Amino acid sequence: MNTEATAMAHRVARPGTVATWLNHWSIQHADWGALSQVSCIGIDGTLLQLLMRRAGYDLGRTSADLVLPILFRDVLPADSAIALIGAAPGVAAKAAARLGTRHRVRAWDGYEQLSSLRFNPEELEEFSPDVIVLGLGAGLQDEVAVEFHRRFPEAVICTSGGWIDQFSRKEQYFPAWVHKFRLGWLWRILHEPRRLLRRYTIDAVSILLKQREYVGRLQALRVEPTPICLEVRRHRP
């Protein structure tokens, strides 16, 4: 059992939590204004975890694909209302079908349906979600998370990057050995080379060159490190 992911799942489950994750790529495309208003920031990815440790932050590695299945399976009460928002049309609906055996799940895509919800969230209000999962691009998903938190202050809101798309295809996108040996980067390059090769080469070098800048920006958020995440003291339920 991944004890860090389990602990993070319990942390995320607190009503009113806005949880997000950063890796070496997304931190370079972050919406820092939105990050200052989330509850907690998990570190996803070995490279960023190592850089944070070098700066004195001994944080465990968690990620949406590790934490969310535990949250849904083991932590949330059965029949919780879960909204999945993101990915291409039809993809979130496939992911919702996988979760629908235990919970009430509704899906909206990350394109026109997201735009409609942001303009008029009446459909989401009628659904009355306990949990909102946002699988959008870096920066945007944090912006929308903070925006929806103002409208649904008691809901748990989590960003999830590409997890909705991954979960729609397979319940466990990464084999267990990939996480065990920290080879998620290699697995993703082999499966999505055109989209991700730059992320794990040029962008990895970029964060190494600018690590002090980005660690400093995180420190400016007045974060409080815990073994599983960075608590943002400006906004902590």
Rank of each mutant, 00 (worst) to 15 (best):
N2F: 09
T3R: 12
A5Y: 09
T6E: 13
T6V: 12
R14H: 13
G16K: 09
H29F: 01
D31T: 09
G33C: 04
G33A: 10
L35A: 06
I41G: 14
I41P: 14
I43W: 01
L50H: 11
M52R: 05
R54N: 04
L59A: 08
G60S: 14
R61H: 02
R61Q: 13
A64R: 02
L68D: 01
F72G: 01
A81M: 06
L84Q: 06
A96T: 02
R104Y: 03
W108V: 00
W108Q: 00
Y111Q: 14
S116L: 13
L117T: 11
L117E: 08
L117S: 11
R118P: 00
F119I: 07
E123R: 11
E125C: 06
E125N: 03
E126V: 12
F127I: 15
F127Q: 13
L136R: 10
A138C: 06
D142I: 02
H149I: 03
R151Q: 15
F152V: 14
I157F: 10
C158K: 04
T159S: 15
G161N: 11
G161Y: 03
I164D: 10
D165S: 15
Q166K: 08
W177R: 09
K180D: 09
R182K: 14
G184M: 05
L186R: 04
L190N: 07
P193E: 13
L196P: 00
L197E: 01
R199M: 12
R199A: 14
Y200T: 12
T201M: 08
V205D: 13
Y214G: 12
Y214S: 11
G216P: 14
G216K: 04
L218N: 06
V232S: 06
